[in-house]
Design a protein around this nucleic acid. Sequence first.
DNA 1: TTTGGCACTCTCTCCCTCTGAGTGCTAATC
DNA 2: GATTAGCACTCAGAGGGAGAGAGTGCCAAA
Lengths: 356, 356
Amino acid sequence: MTRAAKFPDLSDRAQHLLKILVERYIYDGQPVGSRSLSKEAGLNLSPATIRNVMADLEDLGLITAPHTSAGRMPTVTGYRFFVDSLLTVQPLEQQVVRQLQQDLASPGDPDDLLEAASRLLSDVTHMAGLVRVPRPEGATFRMIEFLPLSEQRILVILVTNTQEVQNRIIYPGRSFSPAELTAAANYLNAAFAGRALSEIRDILLKDLQEDRDRLNQEVLRAVEIADLAFQDSGQTRRKPFLVTGETNLMDFDELADRDRLRGLFSAFRRKEDLVHLLDRCLETPGIKIFIGEESGYQVLDHCSLVTSSYAVAGGGFGVIGVIGPTRMAYEKVIPLVDVTAKLLGAALNQKSLSPS
Amino acid sequence: MTRAAKFPDLSDRAQHLLKILVERYIYDGQPVGSRSLSKEAGLNLSPATIRNVMADLEDLGLITAPHTSAGRMPTVTGYRFFVDSLLTVQPLEQQVVRQLQQDLASPGDPDDLLEAASRLLSDVTHMAGLVRVPRPEGATFRMIEFLPLSEQRILVILVTNTQEVQNRIIYPGRSFSPAELTAAANYLNAAFAGRALSEIRDILLKDLQEDRDRLNQEVLRAVEIADLAFQDSGQTRRKPFLVTGETNLMDFDELADRDRLRGLFSAFRRKEDLVHLLDRCLETPGIKIFIGEESGYQVLDHCSLVTSSYAVAGGGFGVIGVIGPTRMAYEKVIPLVDVTAKLLGAALNQKSLSPS
DNA sequence: TTTGGCACTCTCTCCCTCTGAGTGCTAATC
DNA sequence: GATTAGCACTCAGAGGGAGAGAGTGCCAAA
């Protein structure tokens, strides 16, 4: 059952009026009164009639009045219904499309591309752009290399299929000769190329336990050192996600309150909650929207989040999105996020296949 | 001439009163009146006398009144004089010292150490902590390695003496065989080890121009590819500096104004200005303080910055500091920044010499 | 040089009023 | 039965004193 079916008893007229009301409120941020709504709706109804309808909508929990003598504004439920059933999505402006194509086609390393996408979102919407960096889940091993830095320290370079290079310095118990290191790298590269990063460590551990005796010295050494090298290779991500244009959020009166801002900016810093939220958007492809308290995180109470996932060559998935006040121009933000995600995905994949 | 000599005609009594006034204002943020100052000063002077002194101090531009019937508060000049000549630095609390030692002694990669230092500063002061990552200026070349990723793409790994590893993917015009790459790396490692990163590129360029004919094929190829590899090696720093606890700044009434906050947070994001400012702190060792507009950046108009530089093994210098409202507890912040810088320097250097 | 006294100045808070926008209800109208 | 005009009512917000409180500057006396 779609969410749209939640209010079956809603007449077409009531739906139309709700739509106008929400659009109007999104446009100027003022509670909408019966008088202006009657003018705007183009239905030739008197304010009194409109008032009756509005009372019904309020009973259904779709709109609310901040106080007796003010107009009505949408509730979260109202926004939800609007977004699910009433919204007429606007096509993207040509100029924006051009800018998107231009910025996401330029060469550069994938991290820059992600940042460009996020910045684009925040610049165009004047809200904050979010990018969830592709999860390394699907990442597969491509090659490894050991560089001795000193007696005790070895620099490990790990290349995965997702345009990604990880550096790590390990401190093995004993020293390894360059020849040993090269041999180890050769063995690992041959044995594990194409394997999922996540399973390599398990295999290594099993090897160490079960086949200790059967393995020859050289392989054993390789396994030993590789075990150190692959520690945390799945998790250790410098930046699980990035935000741009946070400061734009300060310009919205709804969010300008000190505590709210503090909460929001802390969340951008702490990241966990937002990462978790974004990961929930991965479950299903396409656009996903959280309105106000729907996200379940109190700091986002007066915010909405519009996201879309994008695919990366090699099996990873990421999410991009926009965060702003509940009162945002959904009809413009939604297609923007949608297209950006698609272009970003395309750009990332193209990059890994055919570099300039 | 020290700044302290700027007000030679200031009587001891006036200085003492100024000191009390500043301390008092820093403590509770309210303009200080003659009445409370006369009580606080312990000089057995009537408010009327105090008023005369205050009038003098105002004439000298050291204090100011927000309006006729309010008390006085320090001007930037007043703070400056206070900090330079009147301040009695408080020894650090034992508990803080312990925490510092503990947090900055734990093993981990240098980046984590820097972040820990910054976080410490922001947590202890309830203001924002800044860390300028050591400038690569002094960084010297240690080794280079080329990993072919595909026909056209080569991963360059560049290790410097400052615990730092840089990755870069280059797209040379033609393809290189693994053997060529190894040869090139060997040549470069032998030829440039210990050289300053900044001069290597110059030498390479010169080689290419002047000695083209005299160099043998192999070296020429190495030079060619190295030229690409060293492009921007000096500048390309993912994070020139980091900030922690920005959100703390929202709690200060002086800074809570929307525009000011926006400016500040944008500056934290844009980085250039702050980096430039911090770099100015590198010029001289030890504590450096910018009060309010002294920094020359408008966004910092109501903020003060307390910094200290720290040295890194291998010749690099960095800066750490605290940013907060001009009305901050200098007598506590200064020793804190000082000690943190020293411990951080020690920790970083120790790390590079004797890894666990 | 210090002090008490005094007139004066501002800000801040509280309270009051007025206005404008909007509502809900009722009775008349289509 | 749906729509509308009319009317009484409510409430936020702007504006305008009045009064209190905290300070000041200055003058004349100690």
